[in-house]
């Protein structure tokens, strides 16, 4: 069946018309939506000399904010990777009452305005909030600390891993696991040798998306971070701070560094994903 479909597609050259026009539209579309605004960003940065640019993007406060932003975003994506796979597994493999509701719940962080998410999280986790009041006596402060940033980033990145891993798990038939067990694999081996390589590319995609989303997040974090210089000040806030002083060039300089770093990291994850897919296919 699969082979037949492939063959027929090959004969017609695909459902969409020709390679030329489709690539043309893709390039045009990407330029309009992504490249032109981004080149404006780089262009504005150019008004700084190389020396000024370096001073701007390597000042102690900016460096501290990079560490905080990328570090917590990475941790948040990691948390989401673990629990996202678990959630996807439960949603695919089991039937239970209220499953549809939980399935819909996963997407909620997508739909909620980020400011609402931030205010809600700050309310719940602050010293007099529902959760905060039980954590505070234990010496755990969440709101207005870097831990709060982690919570907010985890919240907004939750759907990505679940939604990328879920369809892969759905396609993976239970028979594959059964076969592995029949061939003498124990639970851990089945997971490591059979399940994990199959879902790894999707997991990496979800991880990359959650990471990128967390790095760029501003709206929700600002309400829970506390925003203390050197401690809980994220890079997007520093960019806003610079804009507030009408320092457009400084703001774009920091933004372009952030953009470059994100691009390199995403590219690295994509390469990793590509090689893991080849490994899975072998």
């Amino acid at each position: 069946m699969k082979i037949m479909r492939l063959k027929s597609l090959k004969m017609e050259g695909g459902v969409l018309p020709g390679f030329g026009p489709t690539l043309g539209y893709t390039v045009f579309y990407l330029s309009l939506i992504v490249l032109i605004p981004l080149s404006a960003l780089v262009f504005k940065t150019m008004s700084l000399s190389w020396h000024e640019f370096l001073a701007e993007v390597t000042s102690a406060r900016v460096l501290a904010s990079y560490r905080l932003t990328f570090g917590t975003a990475f941790l948040a994506a990691l948390v989401n990777a673990v629990f996202g796979v678990l959630t996807a597994w439960v949603l695919v493999r089991y039937r239970f009452p209220g499953k549809k509701v939980i399935d819909a719940l996963v997407d909620l962080p997508f739909a909620l305005p980020t400011a609402v998410a931030g205010i809600t999280l700050a309310t719940v986790y602050s010293g007099n909030g529902w959760i905060g009041r039980y954590l505070e006596p234990l010496g755990i402060k969440v709101a207005y600390t870097p831990l709060g940033i982690l919570v907010a980033m985890t919240f907004i990145g939750l759907p990505f891993v679940v939604r990328t891993v879920q369809p892969v798990l759905e396609e993976l038939e239970a028979e594959v696991e059964e076969a592995a067990v029949c061939l003498g694999a124990n639970r851990w081996q089945t997971f490591r040798r059979v399940l994990f390589p199959t879902i790894l590319p999707a997991l990496l995609t979800g991880f990359a998306l959650a990471f990128a989303r967390a790095v760029g997040e501003y709206g929700s974090i600002i309400f829970i971070a506390g925003n203390m210089p050197m401690v809980s000040e994220i890079t997007p806030l520093l960019i806003i701070t610079k804009l507030e002083q009408y320092d457009y060039a400084g703001a774009t300089a920091v933004a372009s560094v952030m953009l470059g770093a994100s691009f390199i990291l995403l590219l690295a994850i994509n390469l990793l994903q590509w090689s893991s897919r080849r490994y899975a296919e072998r």
Partner: peptide, 19 residues
Amino acid sequence: PVLDSGARGSTNTFVQRGL
């Protein structure tokens, strides 16, 4: 302890969060 980005944000922190 907290530097909100705007005046209304600070009022909220003081009034709603009890900080």
